[in-house]
């Protein structure tokens, strides 16, 4: 069966609906990110990211997205934002940092965009 048969959702621009299809695709990546709840895991990853990614069985696409710290690529590879937030936390990136990265804006411009939503 083609895996895309699980995609029941009509497209929303700029939005990935994290459903069963994405959950299957990103399982190893998300499991690694879930482990980052623990401080020891975070230290182990930083000491040797390649070995740590191998331990969780990440595929090449997922590994490259981690090396690049590229959030859109991490999402495309099946990453779920709630778990990816823990990956971002390792590098002290907050939700405005990753918002700016995904939208191709500076952090200041991204924060201004958020502020303007209140006007």
């Amino acid at each position: 069966m083609d895996i895309t048969e699980f995609d029941h959702h009509s497209p929303i621009p700029g939005t990935t609906v994290f459903d069963g299809r994405m959950a299957m695709k990103g399982y190893a990546l998300n499991k690694m990110c879930y482990s980052f709840n623990g401080a020891e895991a975070r230290e182990e990853y930083l000491a040797d990211p390649e070995a740590y990614m191998e331990k969780f069985g990440l595929n090449d696409e997922q590994k490259q997205a981690c090396r690049d710290k590229n959030v859109l690529a991490l999402i495309a590879a099946g990453g779920n934002i709630y778990y990816l937030a823990k990956f971002a936390g390792i590098y002290r990136l907050d939700v405005q940092d990753i918002g700016a990265q995904q939208t191709g804006m500076t952090k200041e411009d991204f924060k201004e965009k958020l502020r303007k939503a209140g006007d």
């Binding site: 929303i12 621009p13 700029g14 939005t15 990935t16 959030v71 859109l72 999402i75 934002i81 990816l84 937030a85 939700v95 990753i98 918002g99 995904q102 939208t103 991204f110 965009k113 958020l114 939503a117 209140g118």
Partner: peptide, 13 residues
Amino acid sequence: HQLDGERAGFINK
């Protein structure tokens, strides 16, 4: 709020 994707930063007052 939306944290992920190209639509990150979406707020709908």
